[in-house]
């Protein structure tokens, strides 16, 4: 079958999203669908791998192959998929609890491993599906069901961690800035290596603090900072400054591209088996092990 130019419609499945009306995640799935359509990556050549949580329902709302895995484990699953079949475009999608709490161990290692994949985190700074407990990115003082007296832990800094661990594309988007987000996701998919896109994606039901309005007042584009902040636009090749900007400054939180490193070899390019041209899916065949047995004499 000839593969025709894709449209966004080709990426939308028959399953209606189960998110609350107004949820930030609608913007994320649309950005991903638009990016894949614009890049003309066929749904059958794409694997969207998610964890558990409201946002992790995302693969069901799209047409590509997908796995809706278990809580916090989408990164190792996605890595297994990519190493098994490097021909697939692999995209991980999950939430802040999934990726930065229960899955934080995998997150750190995925960043340094540089497997060629995109990881989109829908960060709403709250646990939504479990009805509103504190998340690793909840701000200090945030009153939630599990922190009725206010959260006493400082928030996890995903951008800073990703940079420290060696991720080669580190960015943050915002559901309320769809044009910017679509371009960001597209650039992340095109990036060769591990790309993190942390997306502020507000929970309209359980997070009454970090709302669309709050984000609009609080965040700024690090690559095009507002004049009143009086700072230089950030150059994504500058990792040290990207790290500095990953922390809030002037009571503002940055979004945009914090770091982009091109030309670094991916894990798959360096794996000795894959490097030798093996495709672990296509090359499943009987192996003659007689020489190996002979070597044990």
């Amino acid at each position: 079958m000839a593969e025709t130019e894709l449209t966004v419609k080709d990426l939308i499945s028959d399953t209606k999203p189960t998110w609350c009306p107004g949820c930030g995640d609608f913007g994320v799935v649309r950005a991903l669908q638009t990016a894949l359509a614009e890049l003309n990556i066929q749904p059958h050549d794409t694997a969207v791998i998610s964890g558990i949580g409201c946002s992790s329902n995302l693969p069901h709302f799209m047409t590509p192959y997908g796995m809706h895995t278990i809580h916090g484990r989408l990164l190792p699953v996605a890595m297994g998929v990519k190493l098994a079949n490097p021909e697939l475009t692999v995209i991980g999608t999950g939430g802040d609890g999934d990726g930065y709490a229960i899955g934080a161990g995998h997150f750190a290692h995925a960043c340094r491993r540089n497997v060629d994949m995109t990881y989109i985190v829908m960060n709403n700074q709250i646990y939504g599906l479990t009805t509103g407990q504190t998340s690793p990115t909840s701000g200090e003082g945030h009153t939630t069901k599990s922190t009725p007296g206010g959260n006493i832990e400082p928030p996890f800094n995903p951008i800073g961690v990703a940079l420290a661990e060696g991720a080669t594309f580190v960015a943050r988007g915002f559901s309320g800035d769809p044009k910017h987000l679509q371009a960001l996701v597209k650039r992340a998919i095109q990036h060769k290596g591990f790309a993190l896109v942390d997306v502020f994606s507000p929970c309209v039901t359980f997070n009454k603090l970090n709302t669309f309005k709050w984000y609009k007042q609080t965040i700024y584009n690090v690559n095009e900072p507002p004049k009143d902040m009086d700072i230089e636009p950030h150059d994504p090749s500058d990792r040290a400054r990207g790290f500095a900007l990953s922390f809030p400054g002037q009571d503002r939180i940055g979004y945009g591209v914090f770091y982009e490193e091109t030309g670094k070899l991916t894990y798959g390019e360096q794996d000795p088996t894959l490097h030798a041209g093996v495709n672990p899916v296509h090359d499943v065949k009987p192996r003659d092990v007689r020489a190996l047995v002979e070597a044990m004499k």
Binding site: A47, I49, M67, T69, I70, R73, L75, P76, V77, A78, M79, G80, V81, K82, L83, A84, N85, L88, G105, H106, A108, H109, D271, T273, L274, V278, P280, V281, D283, V284, K285, R287, V289, L292
Partner: peptide, 26 residues
Amino acid sequence: NGVVVKQMEDEIGVVNATIGAAWAGA
């Protein structure tokens, strides 16, 4: 001998990577 071999960060990563590879068709 055509085998990709990966040491992971923990056994949770191990089994999930193996599941990912198997689902993909390895």
